[in-house]
Design a protein around this nucleic acid. Structure first.
Length: 312
DNA sequence: GGCCAGGGTAGCA
DNA sequence: TGCTACCATGGC
């Protein structure tokens, strides 16, 4: 299948650290991941070919559904030229030097996005992505195609029932430890003190709150709901809304966005609240994309490093 | 070995 | 509301 795309940089989108999911498995310039298409597990390989995205499913699945899923995940229906014009109007077109073609990398599984976003808090990208991959390997369903194994992300019900730390893990195993015993707890995935947040959020989503409700809710109501989850604060909630549910009014404010926004608006002295108000007023439904381009540009242009050293 | 990671929470004024 | 200490842990 070949999907015509406008400006789209698959590799940059994969590596931009969006908390919907870890980057897909890269094999010779293409990216592979397991998708569920109408209930059927189906690994898919996507490859960027100058204006066209080539999509190769490993098994026979309905083409229309697959196409819609790919178009959703990479936000291919987003009118990016229109966004470029918007950036120009807002005097932000310099971000295109490094970020042209970057799009949202949306969740293939909203629950995975919730846990990824919680795991990303105060944590490097390499570390939280590894944690998510470990969680998949330990508790997801394995599917092997031509000797290549992929794992689903576990359901809220499964993740709610796992051990939190190795002590609890050992207690479960009691004293008849098998010789090949391996730790099978959340902390062994490197999530640290976030382990109880992840387990309790999983329990709530398994028993009390249907995450799919977010789709039909407006931004403010959805945000309020997400903030009830342990481990979900303002920044994580906005990441879930933006990368998990495509609420593009969301403007996740992290340490870097604080520095960048105060750098490009000298004298304004934003606090978090005034920054979010400014973003919603100035950028509206483009706020999420503006945040994506600002962060990516600063990171790739070296501005972030200069800001970190206080010489920006 | 100290500092930093795309922060959240609890405790306090 | 606004501020602060504390929280695991891997990478550099």
């Amino acid at each position: 299948m070949r999907i015509p795309v406008g400006d789209f940089d698959l590799e940059m989108t994969q590596r931009s650290g969006q908390t919907s999911q870890p980057p897909w498995r890269e094999v010779e310039g293409a990216f592979r991941e397991l998708l569920i298409i109408e209930g059927v597990p189906c690994p898919v390989e996507v490859r960027d070919e100058a204006g066209v995205l080539r999509v190769r499913p490993y098994v026979d699945v309905p083409q229309k559904t697959l196409r819609e899923k790919i178009e959703y995940i990479f936000d291919l229906k987003f009118d990016i030229e229109d966004f470029y014009t918007f950036l120009e109007d807002k005097n932000l077109s310099y971000t295109l030097d490094s970020s042209r073609g970057l799009r949202l990398f949306l969740a293939k599984d909203p629950f995975e996005c919730v846990i990824s976003s919680i795991a990303s808090a105060n944590c490097s990208v390499v570390r939280w992505t590894r944690s998510i991959e470990d969680i998949r390997r330990l508790w997801g369903q394995a599917h092997t195609f031509n000797g290549e194994t992929f794992h689903t992300f576990p359901s809220p019900h499964v993740l709610a029932g796992v051990a939190e730390d190795s002590l609890e893990d050992l207690q479960r195993a009691e004293d008849n430890l098998p010789s090949d015993f391996r730790f099978n707890d959340l902390r062994s995935c490197g999530v640290g003190y976030r382990a109880p947040y992840i387990r309790e959020t999983s329990r709530i989503l398994a028993e009390e709150m249907d995450i799919r409700r977010i789709d039909g809710m407006d931004y403010d109501d959805a945000r309020e709901l997400l903030l009830e989850l342990p481990g979900v604060g303002p920044k994580v909630a906005d990441c879930i809304l933006l990368y998990g549910f495509r609420k593009t009014e969301a403007f996740p404010v992290d340490v870097w966005i604080r520095r960048i926004m105060n750098h490009i608006h000298p004298g304004r002295n934003f606090n978090d609240r005034s920054m979010v108000e400014f973003a919603r007023r100035e950028y509206g439904e483009m706020a999420g994309y503006v945040q994506l381009y600002l962060f990516n540009h600063a990171r790739r242009s070296g501005l972030l490093d200069r800001l970190r050293q206080g010489t920006g």
